[in-house]
Simulated assay, not measured.
Amino acid sequence: MDIDVSSEAYSNLYTLLKQHNEYNCVRFSHLSSCCKNATVDVILDEVAPNDSINKIKNINFVYSKELEEKIKSINLIYRDSNFLLKCEPLVQNKSCSNCGNNGSDCGSCSGCNFKK
């Protein structure tokens, strides 16, 4: 998975990790969403034994193998006091018609839904 972090996002994450030494990494985690979209969140966390790790400068960015199998790239920026993520899924299933607008996995599209 390709991870691109802007210098401003990196600087702010580095500061947060220094202020919260109970955490040792930045985690990209999956959020349930319609299978047409790849929804990822960014949180401070601790490295787990089965995590994939991508070290950028002095920060470990971690994610699950499952996320790595679904996401091609993540672009993280910092703008207007917010972290913003843009993700590109490996496969986009635009033909899925079973997704509602309630923000949950439809669970019926093969190859595009995440396990809960």
Rank of each mutant, 00 (worst) to 15 (best):
residue 1 M to T: 14
residue 2 D to V: 14
residue 2 D to L: 12
residue 3 I to N: 07
residue 3 I to T: 07
residue 4 D to T: 14
residue 5 V to K: 02
residue 6 S to K: 06
residue 7 S to M: 04
residue 8 E to D: 13
residue 9 A to P: 01
residue 9 A to K: 03
residue 10 Y to N: 04
residue 11 S to R: 14
residue 11 S to E: 09
residue 13 L to R: 00
residue 13 L to S: 04
residue 14 Y to V: 01
residue 18 K to C: 02
residue 18 K to E: 00
residue 19 Q to H: 01
residue 21 N to I: 04
residue 21 N to C: 08
residue 25 C to N: 00
residue 25 C to M: 03
residue 27 R to L: 06
residue 27 R to Y: 02
residue 28 F to C: 08
residue 29 S to N: 12
residue 31 L to V: 13
residue 31 L to D: 05
residue 31 L to H: 04
residue 32 S to W: 07
residue 35 C to R: 10
residue 35 C to V: 12
residue 36 K to F: 04
residue 36 K to C: 06
residue 37 N to F: 13
residue 37 N to R: 12
residue 40 V to T: 12
residue 42 V to R: 05
residue 44 L to G: 06
residue 44 L to H: 01
residue 44 L to A: 00
residue 46 E to T: 15
residue 47 V to H: 02
residue 48 A to K: 12
residue 48 A to H: 10
residue 48 A to D: 06
residue 49 P to D: 10
residue 49 P to C: 02
residue 49 P to G: 06
residue 49 P to K: 03
residue 50 N to K: 14
residue 50 N to M: 12
residue 51 D to A: 07
residue 51 D to M: 04
residue 51 D to C: 07
residue 52 S to R: 05
residue 52 S to Q: 09
residue 52 S to D: 06
residue 53 I to L: 08
residue 54 N to W: 02
residue 55 K to I: 05
residue 56 I to A: 03
residue 57 K to R: 11
residue 58 N to G: 08
residue 59 I to V: 09
residue 59 I to E: 01
residue 59 I to Q: 10
residue 60 N to W: 05
residue 60 N to E: 06
residue 61 F to D: 13
residue 62 V to C: 07
residue 63 Y to T: 02
residue 63 Y to L: 15
residue 64 S to Y: 09
residue 65 K to V: 05
residue 65 K to D: 06
residue 65 K to A: 09
residue 67 L to F: 13
residue 67 L to K: 12
residue 71 I to A: 04
residue 71 I to D: 03
residue 72 K to F: 10
residue 73 S to H: 06
residue 74 I to E: 03
residue 74 I to H: 02
residue 74 I to S: 03
residue 76 L to M: 09
residue 76 L to K: 08
residue 77 I to G: 03
residue 79 R to C: 00
residue 80 D to P: 00
residue 83 F to I: 04
residue 83 F to Y: 10
residue 84 L to I: 15
residue 84 L to E: 14
residue 85 L to C: 02
residue 86 K to I: 09
residue 86 K to L: 07
residue 91 V to Q: 05
residue 91 V to I: 15
residue 92 Q to M: 15
residue 92 Q to K: 15
residue 93 N to M: 03
residue 93 N to E: 12
residue 94 K to N: 13
residue 95 S to Q: 13
residue 96 C to T: 07
residue 97 S to N: 15
residue 97 S to C: 13
residue 99 C to R: 01
residue 99 C to G: 05
residue 100 G to K: 08
residue 101 N to A: 15
residue 101 N to H: 15
residue 101 N to Y: 14
residue 101 N to V: 15
residue 103 G to M: 11
residue 103 G to F: 05
residue 103 G to E: 11
residue 105 D to V: 14
residue 106 C to R: 08
residue 106 C to A: 02
residue 108 S to K: 14
residue 109 C to G: 01
residue 110 S to Y: 10
residue 112 C to H: 08
residue 112 C to I: 08
residue 114 F to H: 07
residue 114 F to S: 07
residue 114 F to I: 03
residue 115 K to M: 09
residue 116 K to P: 00
residue 116 K to N: 14
residue 116 K to D: 11
